[in-house]
């Protein structure tokens, strides 16, 4: 049985896709496979001393993780970040984009730049500034609360306030990006439909719900997929602002992985965490695209 020889067209196709496929293989498939392999071993600092200290443990790392209270804590914290953070960030982006889209707003480019700037500033620099803003005793935010007659909050010191405090910062930091994306999407909303709806007496909310929203649906889906993935991988903000504290209330899955893997060199365990996170993000994205399909956005 011989296979038919490749046609010239097929050869050309392989020639063009080959380099990209090779790169994907080298920088994506290979590392992921190796991480998967690593997650089935008990690779630890002892392995640096002697490779014979590495054992194949099957799903042992995963079983161990499920027994670790801090891992569950990290999962819960991450879920809280995502559940609160995604609506906050997308809401802020969409709100700002709608405001800026209004015909009566002047100096639009200036506003866009001003609102986009936090996104392109360094996380660490802005986190340091926000730590000052959130300071219990001298912070501007508590000063403002005092002005409104509210008691000061111990933002970064109270395990219940620490996640909201970080979310305030994260939302401020990232909403500019999606705002720009939404601005682009809004300018593509058909004006004739909008006019027709207005003539038919649709309210402001009715026009938003039935004209704007369907038109920007695909963009909204994309933004939420990216935001969910981003929030599930949140790391730098708690690392810089709270070091995971107070009382481990801001330890996220990625933070946990970083500690296990790079601080304590339990790379087997850390790879298992990475695998779980990978599967989680994949599953959530899958659900999101199903929702998108049902709404005929894709």
């Amino acid at each position: 049985m011989t296979r038919p020889a490749m046609t010239g067209q097929e050869r050309t196709a392989w020639l063009f896709t080959g380099p990209v496929l090779a790169i994907i293989l080298a920088v994506l498939v290979l590392p992921v496979t190796l991480a998967l392999a690593l997650s089935l071993t008990d690779y630890s600092i002892y392995a640096l001393a002697d490779w014979d200290n590495v054992k194949f443990v099957g799903l042992g790392n995963f079983a161990e993780l499920l027994r670790t209270a801090l891992f569950w804590r990290a999962l819960a914290n991450t879920a809280l970040f995502a559940v609160l953070g995604v609506p906050m960030a997308i809401g802020a982006s969409l709100g700002a984009a709608l405001l800026l889209h209004d015909a009566t707003v002047r100096w639009k480019p200036l506003w866009r730049v001003a609102l986009f700037v936090p996104y392109v500033t360094s996380v660490v620099a802005t986190a340091v500034v926000w730590r000052f803003l959130l300071n219990t005793r001298f912070g501007l935010i508590n000063y403002a609360l005092g002005w409104l007659g509210l008691p000061p909050a111990d933002w970064l010191g109270d395990p219940h306030a620490s996640i909201p405090a970080i979310l305030l910062f994260v939302t401020w930091k990232i909403f500019g990006y999606n705002m720009i994306v939404f601005t682009a999407a809004l300018s593509a909303v058909p004006q004739d439909l909008m006019e027709a709806a207005r003539l038919d007496g649709a309210s402001r909310w009715g026009r938003f719900r039935h004209v704007t929203l369907p038109a920007i649906g695909p963009t909204l889906l994309l933004a939420s997929v990216m935001s969910v993935a981003g929030f599930l991988q949140i790391f730098a903000e708690p690392y810089v602002m709270t070091l995971g504290g107070p009382a481990q209330s801001t330890v996220t899955v990625l933070y946990f992985m970083f500690d296990e893997g790079f601080k304590w060199w339990n790379l087997g365990q850390a790879s298992a965490v990475a695998m779980i996170l990978f599967v989680l993000i994949l599953a959530i994205t899958f659900v999101e695209t199903r929702i998108g399909k049902r709404n005929a956005w894709l």
């Binding site: 730590r131 000052f132 300071n135 219990t136 970064l156 010191g157 709270t242 070091l243 504290g245």
Partner: peptide, 9 residues
């Protein structure tokens, strides 16, 4: 104080 080093700058 009930505080972490991240709070006492």
């Amino acid at each position: 104080p009930r505080a972490l080093s991240t709070e006492v700058q």
